[in-house]
Computed example of a mutant assay.
Amino acid sequence: MKYQAVIFDWDGTLADSTGRIVEAMQCAAKDFDLPVRTGFEIQQIIGLGLPEAIITLWPHLERDPTVVKGMAKQYGLHYEDEVRSDVVLFEHAMELIEQIKSLGLKIAVATGKGRVGLNRVLNQFELMAVFDDTRCADETRSKPHPLMLHELSLSLNVDSEKMLMIGDTQFDLDMAHNAGMDCVAITHGAHSLEKLKQSQPLLVVDNLKQLSAWLSAQSEPVL
Protein backbone atom coordinates (compact mmCIF):
# COMPACT_ATOMS: atom_id res chain seq x y z
CA MET A 1 0.00 0.00 0.00
CA LYS A 2 1.46 3.32 -1.11
CA TYR A 3 -0.59 5.35 1.37
CA GLN A 4 -0.28 5.71 5.12
CA ALA A 5 -3.23 8.06 5.67
CA VAL A 6 -6.61 8.73 4.06
CA ILE A 7 -8.16 12.19 4.39
CA PHE A 8 -11.88 12.65 3.81
CA ASP A 9 -13.93 15.69 3.08
CA TRP A 10 -17.15 15.56 5.12
CA ASP A 11 -20.16 17.18 3.39
CA GLY A 12 -21.01 15.36 0.17
CA THR A 13 -18.28 12.76 0.68
CA LEU A 14 -19.04 10.88 3.88
CA ALA A 15 -22.27 12.71 4.78
CA ASP A 16 -25.26 13.24 2.51
CA SER A 17 -25.84 16.83 3.62
CA THR A 18 -26.12 18.78 0.36
CA GLY A 19 -29.88 19.32 0.64
CA ARG A 20 -29.61 20.68 4.15
CA ILE A 21 -26.81 23.08 3.17
CA VAL A 22 -28.86 24.42 0.25
CA GLU A 23 -31.97 24.96 2.37
CA ALA A 24 -30.06 26.68 5.17
CA MET A 25 -28.25 29.04 2.78
CA GLN A 26 -31.46 29.98 1.00
CA CYS A 27 -33.18 30.75 4.31
CA ALA A 28 -30.24 32.87 5.47
CA ALA A 29 -30.43 34.85 2.21
CA LYS A 30 -34.11 35.58 2.83
CA ASP A 31 -33.29 36.80 6.34
CA PHE A 32 -31.03 39.47 4.82
CA ASP A 33 -33.25 40.26 1.81
CA LEU A 34 -30.62 38.94 -0.57
CA PRO A 35 -31.36 37.30 -3.93
CA VAL A 36 -32.00 33.62 -3.24
CA ARG A 37 -29.53 31.48 -5.14
CA THR A 38 -30.59 28.23 -6.79
CA GLY A 39 -29.73 24.83 -5.41
CA PHE A 40 -27.27 24.32 -8.24
CA GLU A 41 -25.52 27.62 -7.51
CA ILE A 42 -25.19 26.80 -3.82
CA GLN A 43 -23.87 23.32 -4.56
CA GLN A 44 -20.96 24.90 -6.43
CA ILE A 45 -19.66 26.59 -3.24
CA ILE A 46 -19.93 23.55 -0.96
CA GLY A 47 -16.47 22.82 0.37
CA LEU A 48 -15.39 26.41 0.86
CA GLY A 49 -15.21 27.98 4.29
CA LEU A 50 -18.52 29.64 5.17
CA PRO A 51 -17.40 33.29 4.76
CA GLU A 52 -15.75 32.46 1.44
CA ALA A 53 -18.89 30.63 0.31
CA ILE A 54 -21.14 33.57 1.18
CA ILE A 55 -18.92 36.07 -0.63
CA THR A 56 -18.74 33.80 -3.69
CA LEU A 57 -22.54 33.68 -3.86
CA TRP A 58 -23.00 37.41 -3.14
CA PRO A 59 -19.73 39.13 -4.20
CA HIS A 60 -20.84 42.61 -3.10
CA LEU A 61 -20.78 41.40 0.52
CA GLU A 62 -16.98 41.37 0.42
CA ARG A 63 -17.28 45.06 1.31
CA ASP A 64 -19.59 44.33 4.25
CA PRO A 65 -18.00 41.86 6.70
CA THR A 66 -20.72 42.58 9.27
CA VAL A 67 -23.38 41.16 6.97
CA VAL A 68 -21.17 38.18 6.12
CA LYS A 69 -20.79 37.44 9.82
CA GLY A 70 -24.54 37.79 10.35
CA MET A 71 -25.28 35.56 7.37
CA ALA A 72 -22.92 32.92 8.71
CA LYS A 73 -24.70 32.98 12.07
CA GLN A 74 -28.14 32.68 10.48
CA TYR A 75 -26.94 29.89 8.21
CA GLY A 76 -25.80 27.95 11.26
CA LEU A 77 -29.14 28.42 12.99
CA HIS A 78 -31.07 27.31 9.92
CA TYR A 79 -28.75 24.34 9.38
CA GLU A 80 -29.52 23.07 12.87
CA ASP A 81 -33.28 23.53 12.42
CA GLU A 82 -34.84 20.07 12.77
CA VAL A 83 -37.31 20.70 9.93
CA ARG A 84 -34.47 20.72 7.38
CA SER A 85 -33.52 17.73 5.26
CA ASP A 86 -32.05 14.88 7.27
CA VAL A 87 -28.28 14.42 7.24
CA VAL A 88 -27.22 10.79 6.97
CA LEU A 89 -23.98 9.01 6.22
CA PHE A 90 -23.68 7.67 2.71
CA GLU A 91 -24.13 3.93 2.31
CA HIS A 92 -20.98 1.93 3.19
CA ALA A 93 -19.39 4.89 5.02
CA MET A 94 -18.99 3.03 8.31
CA GLU A 95 -17.71 -0.12 6.60
CA LEU A 96 -15.15 1.93 4.67
CA ILE A 97 -13.92 3.67 7.80
CA GLU A 98 -13.53 0.31 9.54
CA GLN A 99 -11.69 -1.08 6.50
CA ILE A 100 -9.21 1.80 6.50
CA LYS A 101 -8.56 1.35 10.21
CA SER A 102 -8.09 -2.41 9.72
CA LEU A 103 -5.46 -1.72 7.05
CA GLY A 104 -3.46 0.17 9.66
CA LEU A 105 -3.88 3.50 7.90
CA LYS A 106 -4.45 6.78 9.67
CA ILE A 107 -7.71 8.55 8.91
CA ALA A 108 -8.67 12.22 9.13
CA VAL A 109 -11.20 14.82 7.99
CA ALA A 110 -10.46 18.08 6.14
CA THR A 111 -13.67 20.07 5.83
CA GLY A 112 -15.14 23.44 5.02
CA LYS A 113 -17.40 23.06 8.06
CA GLY A 114 -16.73 25.03 11.22
CA ARG A 115 -15.39 23.28 14.31
CA VAL A 116 -18.65 23.47 16.24
CA GLY A 117 -20.58 21.99 13.31
CA LEU A 118 -18.12 19.17 12.67
CA ASN A 119 -17.92 18.18 16.32
CA ARG A 120 -21.71 18.11 16.48
CA VAL A 121 -22.06 15.67 13.58
CA LEU A 122 -19.13 13.52 14.71
CA ASN A 123 -20.84 13.14 18.07
CA GLN A 124 -24.17 12.49 16.35
CA PHE A 125 -22.70 9.55 14.43
CA GLU A 126 -20.42 8.46 17.30
CA LEU A 127 -17.31 9.07 15.21
CA MET A 128 -15.44 11.53 17.41
CA ALA A 129 -12.90 8.94 18.57
CA VAL A 130 -12.56 7.24 15.17
CA PHE A 131 -10.56 9.89 13.32
CA ASP A 132 -6.91 10.48 14.15
CA ASP A 133 -7.31 14.21 13.51
CA THR A 134 -9.62 16.74 11.84
CA ARG A 135 -9.26 20.22 10.38
CA CYS A 136 -12.01 22.80 9.85
CA ALA A 137 -12.07 25.91 7.70
CA ASP A 138 -12.59 28.27 10.65
CA GLU A 139 -9.30 27.24 12.27
CA THR A 140 -7.06 27.28 9.19
CA ARG A 141 -7.23 28.42 5.53
CA SER A 142 -10.23 27.58 3.35
CA LYS A 143 -9.94 25.11 0.50
CA PRO A 144 -8.37 25.00 -2.05
CA HIS A 145 -5.43 26.42 -0.07
CA PRO A 146 -3.35 23.42 1.09
CA LEU A 147 -2.71 24.62 4.66
CA MET A 148 -5.17 22.25 6.35
CA LEU A 149 -3.57 19.28 4.59
CA HIS A 150 -0.08 20.48 5.50
CA GLU A 151 -1.24 20.73 9.12
CA LEU A 152 -2.68 17.21 9.00
CA SER A 153 0.54 15.92 7.49
CA LEU A 154 2.43 17.29 10.49
CA SER A 155 -0.05 16.11 13.12
CA LEU A 156 -0.31 12.62 11.61
CA ASN A 157 3.44 12.46 10.98
CA VAL A 158 2.82 11.31 7.40
CA ASP A 159 4.43 12.89 4.33
CA SER A 160 2.02 14.46 1.84
CA GLU A 161 2.94 12.04 -0.93
CA LYS A 162 1.82 9.16 1.32
CA MET A 163 -1.59 10.71 2.00
CA LEU A 164 -4.74 10.29 -0.11
CA MET A 165 -7.52 12.91 -0.25
CA ILE A 166 -11.12 11.86 -0.97
CA GLY A 167 -13.62 14.54 -1.97
CA ASP A 168 -16.71 15.44 -3.96
CA THR A 169 -15.73 18.95 -5.11
CA GLN A 170 -13.04 20.65 -7.14
CA PHE A 171 -12.00 22.47 -3.97
CA ASP A 172 -11.04 19.13 -2.37
CA LEU A 173 -9.12 17.94 -5.41
CA ASP A 174 -7.35 21.24 -6.05
CA MET A 175 -6.37 21.44 -2.38
CA ALA A 176 -4.83 17.98 -2.64
CA HIS A 177 -2.88 18.91 -5.77
CA ASN A 178 -1.69 22.10 -4.06
CA ALA A 179 -0.45 19.99 -1.15
CA GLY A 180 1.33 17.46 -3.37
CA MET A 181 -1.16 14.69 -2.57
CA ASP A 182 -3.00 12.13 -4.68
CA CYS A 183 -6.77 12.52 -4.71
CA VAL A 184 -9.87 10.51 -5.56
CA ALA A 185 -13.11 12.16 -6.68
CA ILE A 186 -16.52 10.81 -5.73
CA THR A 187 -19.57 11.73 -7.80
CA HIS A 188 -22.40 11.32 -5.25
CA GLY A 189 -21.85 14.80 -3.79
CA ALA A 190 -21.98 18.44 -4.86
CA HIS A 191 -19.98 18.77 -8.09
CA SER A 192 -20.66 17.13 -11.43
CA LEU A 193 -18.49 14.46 -13.02
CA GLU A 194 -17.42 16.92 -15.71
CA LYS A 195 -16.33 19.48 -13.14
CA LEU A 196 -14.47 16.90 -11.06
CA LYS A 197 -12.59 15.61 -14.09
CA GLN A 198 -11.27 19.11 -14.75
CA SER A 199 -9.15 18.74 -11.60
CA GLN A 200 -7.59 15.52 -12.90
CA PRO A 201 -8.02 13.20 -9.91
CA LEU A 202 -6.15 9.92 -9.75
CA LEU A 203 -9.48 8.09 -9.83
CA VAL A 204 -13.21 8.85 -10.04
CA VAL A 205 -15.69 6.63 -8.19
CA ASP A 206 -19.46 6.84 -7.98
CA ASN A 207 -19.83 5.68 -4.39
CA LEU A 208 -17.98 4.55 -1.28
CA LYS A 209 -18.35 0.87 -2.14
CA GLN A 210 -16.31 1.41 -5.30
CA LEU A 211 -13.72 3.30 -3.27
CA SER A 212 -13.54 0.41 -0.81
CA ALA A 213 -12.88 -2.07 -3.62
CA TRP A 214 -10.14 0.13 -5.06
CA LEU A 215 -8.44 0.51 -1.67
CA SER A 216 -8.57 -3.25 -1.19
CA ALA A 217 -6.81 -3.72 -4.53
CA GLN A 218 -4.11 -1.23 -3.51
CA SER A 219 -3.41 -3.21 -0.34
CA GLU A 220 -2.88 -6.53 -2.12
CA PRO A 221 0.77 -7.63 -2.44
CA VAL A 222 2.34 -7.43 -5.89
CA LEU A 223 3.41 -10.89 -7.11
Rank of each mutant, 00 (worst) to 15 (best):
S155E: 09
L215M: 09
L215N: 03
E80R: 15
Q43I: 01
K195G: 07
S216W: 04
M25R: 00
P35G: 11
S153M: 15
S160V: 11
S219L: 04
M148E: 09
C183W: 00
Y75A: 02
L34R: 08
A5M: 05
Q218N: 03
R141G: 03
A5C: 14
E161P: 07
Q26F: 00
K209C: 12
M1L: 13
E98K: 13
T134F: 10
I100C: 11
S219E: 08
L203S: 08
H92K: 04
A15H: 00
T18V: 07
H150A: 06
G104H: 11
V130T: 06
A110Q: 01
Q4H: 12
L48K: 05
K30N: 03
G112P: 04
V222R: 14
Q26C: 01
L164C: 14
R84G: 02
M181G: 09
A53V: 10
N157W: 12
A5L: 07
G39V: 00
K106C: 10
M163D: 11
M94R: 12
A72P: 06
N119L: 01
D33Y: 11
N207T: 06
P144N: 09
P35V: 08
L173D: 05
L118G: 10
L215V: 02
Q198E: 05
V22I: 05
V83Y: 08
L152Y: 15
H60I: 08
G189N: 12
E82Y: 10
A108G: 15
E41V: 04
S219Q: 15
V67E: 02
L14Y: 10
V6I: 13
I100G: 10
T13C: 11
F40I: 09
